[in-house]
Design a protein around this nucleic acid. Structure first.
Lengths: 298, 298
DNA sequence: CGATCTTACGGGATTCGTAAACATA
DNA sequence: TATGTTTACGAATCCCGTAAGATCG
């Protein structure tokens, strides 16, 4: 027996309508085709399920026994199909994301909000981790995708740029560099710099920038959270280089562009190469791409 | 989507083997056919279930979600099929029978015993009721079939003779008729007769016999149970007419044939006309028919 | 380059519908 | 006799297998 579902559906329809011909029209079938299907089903099971006569169609005891389980079977199948369709339509599901802390504090909240109200049934789990941890989480399938900087193109990871990240100089308002339109690295290297944590991607980038230009990186203060770094700058402990979007909106710091090509970084989607994204994930990414605007990274 | 089961089976096979080609050979299918089936399944659900690449086949999140329910679905289907096959093979089931009390005490126990040991999984429920009640029980589908005398051919009942029933005269050993080979109704009508209950089929038959021959039916004792009737005869309260098989094997009564054509009755199977018998019922009836031998009725 | 999945297309089996035959009340 | 189920058979559909194409490691 190949096509059991259709046969069972035919059987149930006959039972419900109490007639082959009515069931046939209900199923958009000819009565003869229905007869054959019931016969095939009975042959397959080895038992007669229906008592047929021109005047009456009734259940045999075997049909009686099979009726409820078969109804349940079709309901179960419907549930499977509907669940799958829900996932397809992003009406339901779970998305897990690993993203850089700066993204989690920057663009993601607003994206998340619009996503939540557009797809209320989809649960989003956000994990804020440093860049290299993103890669491992994606590889180990702990998360559906990552948001961060381009990984070294090893492994089975795929990177797709979505947003551009640019470092800016943050200084107190009364700092000598505060009024400049743009500064060069060599100009700011003479001042004490507040750095982010050693495992952060911003720290990596800053160290690389200074090393490329053979500039000394003055051993100033360090802080893991960007908010802490900014607070230190406000206290006059130094200046700092942070993603543009790290600006928390308070008006007591100056934000100055840095004149160096490498301050720009692509940040984007990190997925396993073989991965096919769930529909809800695709929706999320599209929302993210619609927000192409200057963004920050930790 | 017509043939969901086969598609689901294909999907599960791919997941188990981790490869399209292996699954294809396992299913006795060509890889291309399998591909098409998975595609159709995915089109139907609207979601990708599998991540395909030449090196790796993995589950998408939707596939992950659908996997267990689908496995359960196939198990449920198997259970339905097996249950039906069990019924077909009479390995399982319930038979309910309405039979005359005399049959329940006469032939049925031995038939029941052999049936039980041949089909241990089939439960047999026996109801001993008077003739007319058998008809109503069969008509109301309270029992699978009845065993009794031919009903008046009204309704939707069908009768099929299986056994022959013959009335005999039972007398004490010292009774004047005890030594006869056969007696006529007129000969025994002069003696007081112990009768069975007014609603019993034997009583009906006896009364009809006497009425046909215009013989008086002496108003003797009555008892509902045949064992009581025989006890009364033993005590010398009179003689009686009972089915031949009512003989309980004790040696203190004489059993004399009655010379009258109408002492024979067909007793047999009573079913609804539209009824298709369950396999186990057919088995039971066949056992019954194999026992064609003189039998009794109440 | 090799293994694997996918697409294209011809052949074959299954299934459908029409029409006639059958069964039952 | 009339209604409803079943059988027979021609036609359409669907599905499978072969072979060529595409893809990833």
């Amino acid at each position: 027996m190949k096509n059991a579902i259709q046969h069972i559906r035919a059987f149930l329809s006959v039972v419900q309508t109490g007639s082959f011909s009515k069931a046939a029209t209900a199923l958009n079938l000819s009565p003869s085709a229905l007869t054959v299907q019931i016969q095939q089903l009975e042959d397959w099971l080895g038992v007669a399920l229906l008592e047929r006569s021109p005047r009456h169609v009734g259940l045999t005891s075997a049909g009686q026994n099979a009726l409820l389980p078969m109804e349940k079977l079709l309901l179960d199948l419907d549930n499977i199909v509907n669940a799958a369709r829900d996932i397809a339509a992003s009406r339901l599901g779970v998305i897990t994301i690993a993203a850089l802390p700066s993204l989690c504090a920057g663009v993601l909240p607003s994206v998340l909000q619009t996503f939540r109200q557009r797809f209320p049934g989809v649960e989003v789990r956000l994990r804020d981790v440093v860049a290299q941890r993103i890669d491992t989480l994606v590889l180990e399938r702990e998360v559906d995708f990552g948001l961060g900087v381009q990984a070294r193109p090893t492994h089975g990871l795929t990177f797709k740029a979505i947003l551009e990240d640019r470092l800016c100089l943050f200084t107190p308002k009364n700092h000598p560099l505060a009024k400049r339109q743009a500064v060069k690295l060599s100009q700011l290297a003479v001042f004490p710099i507040v750095l982010t944590g050693r495992d952060s991607s911003v720290r990596d980038l800053v160290e690389r920038l200074f090393a490329d230009e053979h500039l000394p990186l003055s051993a100033g203060l360090e802080a893991n959270y960007m908010s802490t770094v900014l607070a230190l700058v406000r206290q006059g402990q130094g200046i700092t280089l942070l993603p543009e979007s790290a600006d928390d909106g308070r008006d007591d710091l100056a934000k100055v562009a840095v004149d160096h090509p490498a301050v720009r970084r692509q940040i984007g989607l990190i997925t396993r190469t073989e991965q096919t994204l769930a529909p809800s994930v695709i929706e999320f990414v599209q929302l993210l791409e619609a927000l192409r605007s200057p963004v920050s990274v930790d």
